[in-house]
Amino acid sequence: MIQVKNLKKKFKKTEAVKDISFSVNKGEIFGLLGENGAGKTTTLRMLATMLKPTEGTAILGDSDILKDPSGVRKKIGILFGGETGLYDRLTARENITYFAQLNDIDPKMLKTRIVELTKYLSMEEFIDRKVAKLSKGMKQKVAIARSIVHNPSIMLFDEATSGLDISAARTIHDFIHQCKAEGKAVIFSSHSMAEVEKICDRIGIIRRGQLVAIGTVEEFKKRHGMNNLEDTFIKMVGDQS
């Protein structure tokens, strides 16, 4: 579903991503684990066609990020951490509608799609309230609805749970599992090993713009003879430096 081929990204001075290749299958959750400044956001932004790679490319579904960026955007949904990225003065419904329209949802289907999403995420109570007046958890749900309004087959999460309380983070985790169950390919970036260990099928550890290890959680534990990923991660970082 996702094939990343020798991606490189150089900003003026910094080489943010050096040479990254990996692939993610349908119904698989791939964890991109790395410390601050490792290059996670840059990688995901290239996959989401926000940034142009300096070298290399990636194929998402059957679209190449260089040759068919608009085809790629049709297939992906993104949920980036930090701010939920909603328009405060618009209602939840208006926010979702805006992104639906920009993603070419048939106007005739739009209403039913929003009803579907409202039910799916239990947003009935606040769907017509202005976002400014919503709680953090409610906003999170609206952001999720917005990211999947066009029913993407690939989901990109960048530090999607950072700064959230346990129950809001739980909403996201449940949603990610739901994506997996629906057969979507998922990339989930985080700097928390515990979190990645809990929800991901396979993991890539990224360090200074390079993938230093890839494997399933089990493989990692076996290979390094450790019981949890945190120790493994620390050991790996230690190995390299």
Binding site: S70, I78, F80, E83, Y87
Partner: peptide, 14 residues
């Protein structure tokens, strides 16, 4: 500042 630009840029229109 509000983080709405990134989702906006991953929609269809160039």
């Amino acid at each position: 500042e509000r983080g709405t630009l990134e989702p906006l840029l991953t929609t269809q229109p160039n």
